[in-house]
């Protein structure tokens, strides 16, 4: 006799029940936890922005965010304004940090769409810093981050993160030894043209003493992540460069 689990009808019914159970289970979990997950993500974004500004609890060698409970207070204290730039329009919006860069990048496929560019104005110890979110592609998946600059477009601090870069290699972009290298690095070249920051394997400057060369030292063994990171800095900060160049003239 044929086993009952080999019958076509049984297979189909089983498949249908399976889909319903799995789909239901996933949808239930996803929707019931959605609020908490979004809240966590918002806190993380604020932590990232503050980190780039230099508001963090770094110890001797590790990158540490300020703790969750302090985030809300610190964010309102240090981030004075959040701007959304869209075409000729500039408006302040307290939710600008929630703009999804991925969606904005995708939306320009539509020729009529003017991309929204968020810009956060921070103020620490009397100095104004401009913080910009960036997003690009690494070796495996998305990489993103925040760059904090002064009015000369000199980097004041960065925070990079990644979705799935190789542990111990590309994943090190969120380690201090890499991020700290960017501090003080110039984004404009000597003629005040936007140049970005290259991640270089051969600049003979591992200590990164030369801050004017538009280069930082690469992480060994993560060429593609490094190239992706440099490309991300270049293409995502270029739109803002016109503002800083205008300040210079």
């Amino acid at each position: 006799m044929e086993k009952k689990t080999d019958k076509n009808s049984y297979t189909i019914i089983f498949a249908i029940i399976m889909v319903i159970i799995v789909g239901g289970l996933l949808a239930l979990t996803a929707s019931s936890l959605k609020g908490k997950i979004t809240a966590n993500k918002e806190i993380e974004k604020k932590q990232n922005i503050l980190y780039a500004m230099g508001i963090n609890e770094n110890d001797a060698s590790n990158a540490k965010f300020i703790t969750k409970d302090k985030v809300a207070v610190a964010f309102t204290k240090y981030i004075k304004k959040q701007l959304i730039i869209q075409g000729d329009d500039v408006k302040a919006d307290d939710k600008a940090y929630l703009i999804d860069i991925k969606k904005e990048q995708a939306a320009i496929k539509n020729a009529n769409y003017k991309r929204r560019f968020p810009l956060f104005l921070g103020k620490k110890e009397g100095k104004i810093s401009y913080i910009v979110p960036i997003r690009g592609k690494g070796l495996w998946d998305a990489i993103w981050g925040f760059v904090s600059m002064d009015k000369n477009m000199v980097v004041q601090g960065v925070y990079f993160d990644h979705k799935g870069e190789t542990a111990g290699l590309g994943a090190n972009i969120n380690q201090r030894f890499f991020m700290d290298d960017f501090i003080g690095e110039h984004l404009l070249d000597k003629n005040n043209k936007f140049k970005g920051i290259a991640v270089s394997k051969s600049n003979n400057d591992p200590k990164n003493n030369d801050k004017l060369d538009n280069e930082v030292d690469a992480i060994a063994g993560s060429t593609i992540t490094g190239d992706g990171l440099a490309a991300m800095i270049y293409s995502e900060l270029a739109p803002y460069a016109s503002y800083f160049i205008a300040l210079k003239n």
Partner: peptide
């Protein structure tokens, strides 16, 4: 195609700053 911040917007940002 790369958008850049327009002149009008630059002035507005300066005001905000």
């Amino acid at each position: 195609k790369q958008e850049t911040i327009s002149k009008v917007a630059i002035e507005k940002i300066k005001e905000e700053v």
